[in-house]
Structure formats: structure tokens, C-alpha cells
């Protein structure tokens, strides 16, 4: 799911590239406010579904992965901003 079985590389980028949502939005090479709003709503709905369908243990695991990803994204952005301020 997350890693290519042959190479061991993280492959979420390939899944995004091939995903219908991404392909549809990027078809005209432009992203509109409506498309961002619609995609945001789609994510909110998916998260709500997970909250209902997953067991408490699975939900904690998934939630933890999201949070750790969020931490990584935030600190890498902060790191880049630090470089700009030098």
C-alpha cells in the first residue's frame, strides 16, 4: 500500500499521480477555489467515515500516522523558512 514491494520506495506519489481526483483537477492545469473546497470536503468525509468504521485501536494508529506526517510537514516547512531568513 505505502511502499513498492520490489524497490521498497514509498510510493504515495505514484498513487496521487494516477488518482482520479488529481487527474480530474489537473486536467486543465489549473486549480480553482471550488476544486480545493471540493477536495477538502472529500477528505473531511473520508476522515468521518474512518472514525465510524475503524476500531478504537486502528483509529489510534491511523490518527497517530496522520499526526506524525503533520509534524514532519510542519517542521520541514519551518526548516525551509529558516533558510530563507538567513
Amino acid at each position: 500500500m505505502f511502499f513498492d514491494k520490489q524497490t521498497g520506495f514509498f510510493n504515495l506519489d505514484e498513487q496521487i499521480h494516477l488518482h482520479l481526483s488529481f487527474q480530474k483537477i489537473m486536467e486543465d492545469q489549473l486549480v480553482t477555489d471550488e476544486e480545493v473546497t471540493e477536495q477538502s470536503q472529500k477528505v473531511i468525509n473520508l476522515l468521518k467515515e474512518l472514525e465510524v468504521e475503524l476500531s478504537a485501536a486502528d483509529l489510534e494508529k491511523v490518527g497517530n500516522a496522520f499526526v506524525e506526517f503533520g509534524v514532519l510537514y510542519a517542521i520541514s516547512q519551518i526548516r525551509q523558512l529558516q533558510d530563507l531568513n538567513l
Binding site: G8, F9, F10, L12, D13, I16, F69, L72, Y73, S76
Partner: peptide, 11 residues
């Protein structure tokens, strides 16, 4: 801009 780009860079 990919939120997981640091993961790929690490690998």
C-alpha cells in the same frame, strides 16, 4: 509541495 516529500528525500 508534496507533504511526504521529506520521506522520499530520506529514502
Amino acid at each position: 509541495m508534496l507533504f511526504f516529500w521529506p520521506v522520499l528525500v530520506t529514502q
